[in-house]
Nucleic acid binder design. Structure first.
Length: 269
DNA sequence: GCGACAG
DNA sequence: ATCTTGTCGC
């Protein structure tokens, strides 16, 4: 993993104004258009192992390596734990984690300065080079279009996606229904709270990766946005492809599990 | 001053 | 994010 932009490595020391200024630089360098090497069609989560018929064998090269990233906190709340799980063709090919002391509190809009360090450290402990990062948090859906996924993606120049469970800012093109049908997506547009984009610009989507067919209970959509080197549309397509019957895309779900596990087994070390 | 606010 | 058991529903 190469620190393409070492000047962007999250540093909690500067003032709030300086952190926000850095985010504007990051957003300026970020690309919210498709610019990646792998073939989206090869991003699968089907078992590559098919018994019985030789013709079922893959005729193509191995698919892209996707790394899911998730954060957790140790009981004391003063240390952030980042867990990374790398997948290729649906199989886990590597994992890593890191525990870093928390320097600043959670401030909406400045999350990457609190957790970014742990994530970069965890990623540096990975033996493989991910082709795509799926980060828990926002990307372009951010006050300065520089959310956690954008900050990480730009710093190491790797295509990145932001997957959030709640909407940080922006406005859905149409009201989010109580029971959004599975597979549906609604654009999230920049509004006056997004200071770096023209109002109306599509900065992400509300995506329903899983939903009950009937009943009173309902699942809320995910808020997906590009982090780096991806358009909002492609970002949402890829997240949909990563969904394997659960609300969370597989890379995120597995990273979630890894974080919990690592946490219970003692976040120390 | 009031409201809103990823993890 | 985190504090937390059972419980209602598919």
């Amino acid at each position: 993993m190469a620190l393409t932009r070492p000047e962007f490595v999250p540093n909690p020391s500067p003032s709030r104004e300086e952190m926000e200024a850095l985010q504007r630089e990051i957003a300026d360098v970020a690309t919210f258009e498709d610019d990646f090497d792998f073939d989206p069609a090869t991003l699968t989560f089907d078992s590559p192992v098919d018994l019985g018929d030789d013709t079922q064998q893959r005729l193509t090269d191995d698919g892209p390596i996707v790394a899911g990233v998730d954060q957790a906190f140790l009981d004391d709340g003063d240390r952030a734990l980042s867990a990374v799980v790398a997948l290729q063709d649906g199989a886990i090919v590597d994992r890593a984690s890191a525990v870093v002391d928390t320097e600043i509190p959670y401030i909406p809009g400045l999350l990457s300065f609190r957790e970014g360090g742990a994530i970069l450290t965890a990623l540096s402990n990975l033996a493989v080079e991910p082709d795509l990062l799926v980060v828990d948090g926002s990307g372009q859906i951010h006050f300065r279009e520089a959310g956690l996924a954008t900050h990480i993606g730009v710093t190491i120049d790797v295509p990145a996606i932001g997957v959030a469970k709640n909407l940080l800012c922006g406005t859905p093109a149409e009201p989010i229904p109580d029971h959004m049908p599975e597979g549906e997506r609604i654009a999230v547009e920049a509004d006056e709270t997004v200071e770096t984009a023209e109002p109306g610009t599509v900065i992400g989507h509300a995506v329903q990766t899983r939903q009950y067919e009937s009943g009173s209970t309902s699942i809320n959509p995910l808020y997906v946005s590009p982090g780096h080197r991806l358009s909002p549309e492609t970002t949402t397509d890829l997240v949909s492809q990563c969904a394997a019957g659960y609300k969370l895309p597989e890379p995120t779900r597995l990273a979630d599990r890894a974080a919990d596990q690592r946490k219970r087994e003692g976040g120390e070390e």
